[in-house]
């Protein structure tokens, strides 16, 4: 009676999966305190994409309303533009940043006046690409983002390397990503 037994396993796993789904409805949910890292390593190329709600980075999510807020955004962009501050790569891997792109939020004019800005969650997005001469030495990456953006409590990191795909939950205490 292969079928019935398998059926039971199927039932229990799908039930569990169903519960999980309702909990995990939106993959890219914008949750304050949480950010995402997408990391891919192939050959000598290491790509990192960092997505974070502006709240974690600058502490507000609207267009800058005064000089101080404008400055916070500027200094955040400056930090994000220095991948060596954010990611600790093993020196033996000999990696050098070759592409750095930072997309701060609130860069575009609102499409029509009176748009309810406050409802709109805004994200910082930055992309990095490194060239590593000894990519095989790249077994782990220290994530220093927590140090620079204290509003970040957890980072959900997905990584792809020759050892496969994996996801890891990083925090200020557990801030090493295994590839």
């Amino acid at each position: 009676m292969t079928r019935t037994k398998r059926g039971f396993i199927v039932l229990s796993i799908s039930l569990a999966a169903g519960i999980y789904q309702t909990v995990n409805a939106e993959q890219d949910a914008h949750i304050h305190g949480e950010a995402h890292l997408l990391i891919a390593l192939e050959g000598s190329s290491l790509q990192i994409e960092f997505l974070s709600p502006a709240m974690n980075i600058v502490g507000f999510e609207h267009r800058p309303q005064n000089e101080t807020q404008a400055q916070s955004i500027e200094s955040a962009v400056a930090t994000l533009n220095q991948p060596n501050l954010l990611f600790k790569l093993p020196s033996t891997a000999q990696c050098n940043p070759v592409v750095v792109e930072v997309e701060p939020p609130f860069n575009h004019e609102p499409e029509h006046a009176g748009a309810e800005e406050s409802d709109e969650h805004s994200e910082f997005t930055s992309r990095y690409q490194f060239q590593c001469q000894e990519a095989a030495r790249l077994e782990r990456i220290g994530i220093e983002i927590f140090r620079h953006f204290s509003g970040t409590q957890a980072i959900e990191a997905q990584s792809i390397s020759s050892s496969g795909q994996r996801s890891q939950e990083l925090t200020a205490e557990r801030n090493t990503l295994d590839l």
Binding site: A16, Q158, G164, R166, S167
Partner: peptide, 17 residues
Amino acid sequence: ILPGVALQQLWDLMSVA
């Protein structure tokens, strides 16, 4: 979906049981 990542989510889910 990334199958490796989804599999890991499945483990997280199963680990309770």
